[in-house]
Design a protein around this nucleic acid. Structure first.
Lengths: 254, 254
DNA sequence: GAGTGGTCTAGACCACGGT
DNA sequence: CCGTGGTCTAGACCACTCT
């Protein structure tokens, strides 16, 4: 684990465990920063870095004048777990599956050009995959990859379960993601693959992922059957990463 | 603005403007931390605090060895804008409206007890409101308030548009929120108020908000008509506040 | 008034990316 | 190799909460 090689992450992991283990009780108060610094034998700055992580995750509050208060255990997954359907499935004890329906190389459409920051006319690798949990259809994944990434995807065996893990092995790193969550209605492909009526409502997540250098790595539209997943976000007055947008989703009936 | 009374927030706001103004170009590189420190006449630590804000918002990347790269302008709203339907509506140039359908005081149900951290048998104030944008129905809001907050809500005039703003005036501060986003299907109340068929799919946001001391302030379930809103979240490998959960949503048809 | 977290500084060393 | 951001330290002062 990456959590093990840096001081403040070790401290954060330890504190997270202590909170989850009920050491401070739900609703309880954490020791003062100075006390924690002494306990771990590190400086106050390092303790503050650790606590910033817990705070961002909604584990504790913090305000001037009083000790931090436990908000609750963190349900938040690691970034990799969130991006990878496969890793997530395993973490909840289900058997992930993926069936590649089609993989085509074609000129990027308007949306893809913008999201992947490509010059007009550039080609993308477009994959359509059905994802399953223990055999049951759960999600349809439409992903566009820039050719740098798509070439690797195209070379993978047809029965590859996790593209994300494979891409990681090829040095493609996922560093940042921007998600948009709303509703969509099943088109003929969705209906056929998911086994739902055409026009049925699906939970849609559109996502652009970039690498550490800021280059887009994928642009994906995932559509989940109702009742299979929910998304949770924590935010605070200090840092808000969540927004409400006016949507332009198509209406039902087609 | 609160952004004006602290050094690193001033710097962050200035940098955010510069990025939005295209000073560094999309895809461009920011000056080095040391250069920024000198330019603003502050220490490197302060610059790093400012940049941490931009990073959390998805404005810039950062990695060891190279300068930060501009990812894009930040669409993220302030925390208050996100929590308040009213403030959000105004920010997109629409006229917000709210019709209070009912406000009852009753014992909390199982879910409310947990979410608001109340002792069994405690009463809550439960409000059902129809929210409109320029007269058009958009969302149904079912909110449970602990009595400390509910008493204030109950005293508000029936035509109050923004509860959030009023509560703020009474010293109730919203500091942290946990959101869960998924699908729900219109019950008879939803259908009647929103003017959609019973069983129609709606985008659901459930939210627990706490004050700076960590005490729950509200527990709300909001249901949006399709095509009216979408939620966007940014996250990164450094701090992930987004999770995918197994959902237990009810199925359509009831 | 005592204790706490928030802000800011100055300096050090290291890991990494590019040349 | 140099320049960069990441980590860590030590210390200072302030704003705030609580009793």
């Amino acid at each position: 684990m990456d959590d093990r090689d840096v001081l403040y992450r070790r401290v954060a992991a330890d504190l997270r465990e202590a909170v989850a283990g009920g050491v401070y009780g739900s609703d309880g108060r954490l020791p003062a920063e100075s006390a924690l610094a002494e306990h771990y034998g590190v400086s106050r700055g390092t303790i503050r870095q650790a606590l910033a992580l817990l705070r961002a995750g909604g584990v504790v509050t913090s305000r001037r004048g009083t000790r931090r208060v436990v908000l609750g255990a963190a349900p938040a997954q690691s970034f990799a777990e969130l991006l990878s359907f496969t890793t997530w499935a395993r973490s909840i004890g289900e058997e992930p599956g993926g069936v590649l329906e089609s993989l085509t190389v074609r000129p990027a459409d308007e949306e893809e050009l913008t999201r992947l920051r490509l010059r007009p006319g550039t080609q993308v690798y477009a994959a359509l995959r059905l994802r399953t949990l223990s055999g049951r259809p759960v999600m349809i994944e439409r992903t566009a990859y820039p050719s740098r990434v798509g070439r690797i995807v195209a070379a993978l065996p047809a029965d590859t379960v996790s593209y994300t893990e494979r891409l990681l092995g090829h040095g493609i790193v996922f560093a940042d993601a921007e998600h948009t969550i709303d509703l969509a209605f099943a088109d003929p492909d969705d209906a056929r693959l998911l086994g739902c009526p055409e026009g049925a409502a699906l939970l849609r997540e559109r996502r652009r992922t970039t690498d550490p250098a800021g280059r887009p790595v994928e642009w994906s539209e995932d559509r989940y059957l109702p009742g299979t997943v929910a998304f949770t976000v924590h935010n605070s007055i200090a840092t808000s990463t969540l927004s409400r947008l006016r949507s332009a989703a198509q209406q039902p009936g087609q």
